[in-house]
Design a protein around this nucleic acid. Structure first.
Length: 278
DNA sequence: CATTGTCCCTGGAAGC
DNA sequence: TGCTTCCAGGGACAAT
């Protein structure tokens, strides 16, 4: 398998969904036969309990919730994998720059290598999948995410709209790149207080969030960073980015150079002309 | 409750 | 050249 030299990264909803789709046909119905933890820090909670509960169980469902990838086990519990910044799930062991933190083995011979340069990614046992998911906001591509629900979440809040989009309690799965893309498409400056948006702007934002995520899933995610598919292949969603990571490039709509501003310690790219603050 | 700040972690880039 | 410092950023957690 081709080793991928990683830069930095951030798998968001479209990337995790792409991984989920790649893994589902390989893992569904198989038993977890091995769980080798090479770096104990990757396991959140009780590692021994994770082994006891997960080993030998069949994978009943390969699901995604926000940026969390979940392997639901027969019996109701589950394993949750979070890639955070630089994590990747590979079907073949990377030959070079090995940053393998855990290896999951399955009854059909499939092996999953949890590769993570910065060790921020996590694996954990979920005892109650439903309760776990309730901590997260609605899935942006589900019927539970509506203009009304978005408006209710933003109402009265003084935090920048960009920060609101990154809050996983508000809507699950939007990260730094797609927040910038959605705000651009909606024509909103990242620093506008969330509660200041009028209904028309909320509606545009709702449409934009869904559109950028759907388009990115269709492109199998963005690989400007460490993200890659389990087979090492790269997505191409970044090819259609308008502003994210494009400081200085001309805005695709008006030609004005893309600017960058810090919003709560997050680099935020936007068009100063198309995304006015007022 | 709402919001802000700190920490985790590694490696590339920038500055002196 | 070689050192230090900053930065990337998702999310848990602490502090205000």
């Amino acid at each position: 398998m081709t080793p991928v030299l990683h830069l930095s990264g951030m798998p968001e909803l479209p990337e995790v969904e792409t991984i989920r789709r790649a893994l589902e046909p390989l893992l569904l119905g198989e038993r977890l036969t091995g769980l080798e933890v090479l770096d104990a820090r990757i396991v959140q909670g009780d590692a021994a309990q994770l082994r006891v509960e997960a080993l030998g169980r069949r994978i009943a469902e390969v699901m995604r919730r926000g940026k969390h990838l979940m392997l639901l086990l027969e019996g109701g519990k589950g394993i949750v994998l979070h890639l955070r910044m630089t994590g990747s799930l590979l079907l073949n062991e990377p030959e070079r720059s090995p940053r393998v933190r855990a290896i999951l083995s399955f009854s059909n011979g499939t092996q999953l290598f949890f590769n993570d340069m910065r060790r921020l990614g996590t694996i954990a046992l979920i005892n109650d999948v439903e309760a776990y998911c309730l901590r997260l906001g609605p899935e942006p591509l589900s019927e539970g995410f509506t203009t009304d629900s978005l408006a209710r979440c933003l109402a009265g809040r003084r935090i920048p709209v960009k920060a609101a989009l990154l809050d996983q309690h508000l809507v699950a799965g939007v990260g730094n790149m797609y927040a910038d893309e959605a705000l651009f498409q909606a024509g909103l400056h990242p620093l506008i207080p969330a509660g200041d948006l009028h209904s028309g702007q909320v509606q545009r934002l709702w449409i934009a969030i869904r559109a950028v995520l759907e388009r990115a899933i269709a492109s199998q995610g963005a690989s400007i960073n460490t993200y890659c598919l389990p087979n090492g292949q790269k997505g191409s969603a970044h090819d259609s980015f308008s502003v994210a990571h494009k400081k200085g490039d001309p805005c695709p709509a008006c030609g004005t150079p893309i600017d960058r501003v810090m919003v709560r310690k997050r680099g935020s790219y936007y068009c100063p002309e198309c995304q006015r603050h007022s």
